[in-house]
Amino acid sequence: MKFITALVLWVALFTRGHTNSLDSCVGRCGYGTDSDFTCQCNPSCEKYGDCCSDYVQVCKSSSSCKNRCDETYNSQNECHCNSKCSQYNNCCEDYDQVCDVYVAGGGGGSVVSDADIKSISQVLFTLDSNKASASQLILEPQTLIPDSQTSAQTDHAPKPLFRYLDEGTLFSRPTYAALLAVLDNYRRMTGQTEAFTQQQLQEQEHFVRETMSNTEVGRELFAFLYTKGVYSSEEEFLQDLKMMWFGLYSRSNGQLDSSGFEHIFAGEVKGGKVSGFHNWIQFYLLEKRGQLNYYSHSFNGPWTSYPDVLGMQFNWDGYYKQVGSAVIGCSPEFDFALYSLCYITRPGKMCRLSLGGKELRIQTYTWDKTTYGDGKKYIGSAFPATP
């Protein structure tokens, strides 16, 4: 009996002496969940409430994203390391390096950093020789309203947004002509099945090839993605663009009524409101026909030449758009390339570009309900985010 009592006391003292190793994060930061420990030291422990008492002190720096990627938002933190910090401009300085990288192209791809994206977008900006010049496109933005007034549906613009466009020059260029041929192939109401003729399918194919194979912008985008291991050939690149942009899916009533291209370039109407619609040429065409009434703009990009960025309020033949942002004055190949770059490298995230040395942020969304080859996701949306 004395022996057993002594043994119990010894175990108790031994355990007490080693409690710190079980309840501490020293040497354990970043470990996965381990049931041998009484508390955890991984990024998920805050979610499940089982962090060791010294987790924050040992594993997390208030100014770094180390061991903090995708953490739950905490207003007490001086900077943040989750997917929304880019949107709110409160990321820690090392967020890009530690957290915000995406392995483009799946397992066979390579990491594409924010610095890579800014570098290639600046190159694309320089190569956009088909953009409109100041003499070819003249705008009248008129009234700038605050964000708080964008839902008021008040017409503050007595004049059209587009005062002048040199259609004869711009629309005769191959990529503009290819875009015009595709834009009129859609039914804007969701819930109505899209059915394409053979000619319309050929127009889709022609648009992808004309913009991406026959322009410096498109060839440069492919070269970038090829060197990153995203695509192994130009044909694979073109086929994937065709599927992600033009592949049909259902936004309403189970009908194949939508695609990334229709939503972003042509625009749709869903639930009594304009949905998508982020292309300046479609805006110009509808305004010229008297089918679109420009009301105001809520933001204007910092660029003094084209391309520029506007966030517009307008009424499309009885349906209102609260903020329809678009890159204005760029060529069709540039518009298509920017959105494709951001969707391929930052699907469902904020994508930060550099145009003429100034930052442009594009938000992308994936369509998660259906997929195409190898489980890839169609484009849900992409648009310039409010500066």
Score class of each variant (00 low, 15 high):
Asp335Lys: 04
Tyr339Lys: 01
Tyr343Asp: 05
Cys330Leu: 10
Tyr320Lys: 11
Pro347Met: 13
Tyr320Glu: 12
Arg346Ser: 03
Ser354Ile: 06
Ser340Phe: 03
Met350Val: 09
Ser354Arg: 04
Arg346Met: 03
Tyr320Asn: 11
Gln322Ala: 15
Thr345Gly: 08
Gly324Glu: 07
Ser331Met: 04
Leu355Cys: 10
Lys321Gln: 14
Pro347Thr: 01
Gly348Arg: 03
Arg346Gly: 01
Val327Gly: 02
Gly329Cys: 10
Ile328Asn: 11
Arg352Pro: 01
Phe336Tyr: 10
Arg352Ile: 14
Arg352Met: 09
Pro332Thr: 13
Cys351Trp: 04
Phe334Ala: 06
Tyr343Phe: 15
Ser331Phe: 03
Ser331Trp: 02
Gly348Gln: 08
Ser340Tyr: 04
Ser331Tyr: 05
Asp335Val: 14
Gln322Phe: 13
Phe336Leu: 15
Gly324Ile: 01
Val323Tyr: 01
Val323Trp: 02
Cys330Asn: 14
Cys351Arg: 03
Gly356Tyr: 08
Gly348Phe: 07
Cys342Leu: 05
Val323Gln: 06
Leu338Arg: 05
Ser340Ile: 04
Leu355Trp: 03
Leu338Asp: 02
Glu333Lys: 00
Leu355Asn: 05
Tyr319Gly: 09
Phe336Thr: 03
Gly348Ile: 02
Tyr343Pro: 03
Cys330Trp: 01
Ala337Leu: 05
Pro332Cys: 09
Pro332Ser: 12
Cys342Gly: 05
Cys330Pro: 08
Leu341Pro: 00
Asp335Met: 12
Ser325Asp: 04
Ile344Phe: 07
Tyr320Arg: 12
Ala326Asp: 03
Leu353Gln: 04
Cys342His: 04
Ile328Ser: 07
Gly324His: 14
Ser331Asp: 07
Gly318Arg: 06
Ile328Cys: 12
Gly348Ala: 15
Lys349Pro: 04
Val327Tyr: 01
Pro347Gly: 11
Tyr343Arg: 02
Lys349Arg: 12
Gly324Met: 12
Gly318Val: 12
Leu341Val: 04
Phe334Cys: 07
Tyr320Gly: 09
Tyr319Arg: 03
Gly329Glu: 14
Gly318Ala: 13
Asp335Gly: 02
Tyr339Trp: 06
Leu355His: 09
Gly348Asn: 08
Gly329Phe: 07
Ser354Lys: 13
Gly318Cys: 11
Gly356Gln: 12
